[in-house]
Simulated assay, not measured.
Amino acid sequence: MSKDVAVKAKEAKPKVGFFKKTARFFKDLKSEFKKIVWPTKQQVLHNTGVVLVFMLVTAIAIWILDFLFINLFKLMF
């Protein structure tokens, strides 16, 4: 009985070709691109500044930890 249901489900759904799938993909892609909201130049500059400051703070923290661990190991050995 379950074989009959599976066969009927396959028959009811027509096969979609490769080119139709590809065309549908690009159509959907175009509609998604229309939804994009691009940041302003000021937002990009602000976000870049935030990233650079965060990288600097992280680099300094790693440098301090490295310095402390090196001196700690020198004292131990």
Rank of each mutant, 00 (worst) to 15 (best):
V5F: 08
N71P: 03
F19M: 14
K30V: 09
I64Q: 05
D28R: 10
A23P: 01
V44W: 03
K13W: 02
S2F: 10
A6K: 12
K74A: 10
M76A: 09
P39R: 02
K13V: 09
F77G: 13
M55L: 15
P39E: 02
R24A: 15
V51Y: 11
E11V: 03
F25D: 05
V7Q: 09
L52E: 12
T58Q: 04
M55E: 13
K27A: 12
T48R: 13
I62F: 05
P39D: 05
K15I: 13
F73L: 13
V37W: 00
F73Y: 07
V37A: 04
T22F: 13
S2V: 08
S31E: 14
K35D: 08
V7M: 09
K27N: 11
L68S: 00
K27W: 14
F26Y: 12
F33Q: 10
K27M: 12
L65Q: 05
L52Y: 06
S2P: 07
I70D: 12
K8Q: 15
F69C: 06
P14I: 01
H46C: 06
V7K: 15
K8W: 06
L75R: 12
D66A: 11
Q42Y: 06
V16W: 02
V51G: 00
T22N: 08
V57Y: 02
K10F: 06
K34Y: 02
F26T: 03
K34T: 01
L75A: 14
W63L: 15
K30I: 08
A12R: 09
G49C: 07
L75G: 13
K35W: 02
D28F: 02
L68W: 05
I62G: 02
G49Y: 04
V37D: 09
F26K: 03
V51P: 02
D4L: 08
T58S: 09
V5G: 03
F18P: 00
L68H: 04
Q42S: 11
I70P: 00
F67M: 08
P14L: 02
Q43D: 06
P14T: 03
W63C: 14
L72G: 10
T40K: 05
F54K: 15
L65F: 08
K20P: 00
I36H: 04
V50N: 07
S31K: 08
M55F: 14
V53H: 08
F26C: 00
A59Y: 00
L75P: 00
F25R: 08
T58F: 11
K35M: 01
L75V: 07
S2H: 10
A12E: 06
H46R: 15
S31C: 03
F67H: 07
A9T: 07
K8Y: 03
D66R: 07
I62L: 09
I60W: 01
A59M: 11
V50W: 05
F18V: 14
V37Y: 03
G17K: 04
A6P: 01
V7G: 03
